[in-house]
Amino acid sequence: MVLDHFALATSIAHRYDHRGLERQDLEQVALLGLVQAVRRYDPEQGSGFLAFAVPTITGELKRHFRDHGWAVRPPRQLQEHCLAVRSSAERLAQELGRDPTAAEVAASLGLSVRDVGQARGVDGQYVARSMDAPLDHDGGTTLSDTLGETATDLDRVDDFETLRPLLRNLKSRERLIVRLRFVDNLTQRQIGQRIGVSQMQVSRLLSDILLRLRRAIAAKHDDISAAS
């Protein structure tokens, strides 16, 4: 039974690739789950072996991630929500032929949209990010460049204080987009999944928001210069 379902176990393990754990380790955990499924399976219960084996293997992998897979470990319930949200989103994407909205994922799991948002917020915390990692695809600015190592960053305080009331004047969805992009560091695609629009729409919304903020800041500086 183990040899006949070897490929099944490894294919399930590969679903969890690129989340901070070695593929070989994941395959070993999946095979352990397969062995446990073979030992515990009772054909007299009526269900087929696959219906029993798949959740058994998946459960072993999820437990392994909860115990070993987090660089920054969130609360246990949030870890479970994170894995459930990712799994549900992948299933719904296949069924719908598009990325599901946060509301659709929440409905499928019996969670609130806020729960889904929090779960997605911790997704990707399996691996600590390098300080030399580029913030954008062009590879120009790194994470360490944004940490204010020089005194010249103090010159930006005035801009921050100017920006604060301007952000409060944005619509609630616009403030959410800004927070997701520049505080939570989500990609445009991830933001689109959170608010239920396409990546292209997020790009247009961000461009419009940033243009209005730049113009408002420039106008404030012009007013200050004229007054002085």
Rank of each mutant, 00 (worst) to 15 (best):
M1H: 06
L3M: 08
H5Y: 13
A9H: 11
A9D: 13
S11R: 15
H14V: 02
H14W: 07
H14I: 01
Y16D: 05
E22I: 01
D25H: 01
E27M: 06
Q28D: 11
L32F: 02
G33T: 02
V38F: 09
R39L: 12
Q45M: 13
G48K: 06
A51P: 04
P55S: 07
A71Y: 09
E80T: 00
H81Q: 02
A84G: 00
S87L: 02
S87N: 04
S88M: 08
E90Q: 12
E95D: 10
L96K: 03
P100D: 02
V105S: 00
V105E: 01
A106T: 08
A107Q: 14
A107N: 14
S108F: 02
R114N: 04
R120K: 09
D132G: 00
L135F: 04
L135E: 08
G139A: 09
T141A: 04
T146C: 01
L147I: 01
G148L: 08
D159L: 14
T162G: 15
L170P: 12
L170H: 06
K171H: 10
E174M: 10
E174A: 15
R181E: 11
N185K: 04
R189I: 07
V197R: 05
V197I: 15
Q199N: 09
M200A: 14
V202M: 13
L205C: 13
L206N: 08
L210V: 09
L210R: 15
R215I: 01
D222K: 15
D223V: 09
I224F: 08
I224S: 10
S225G: 07
A226R: 15
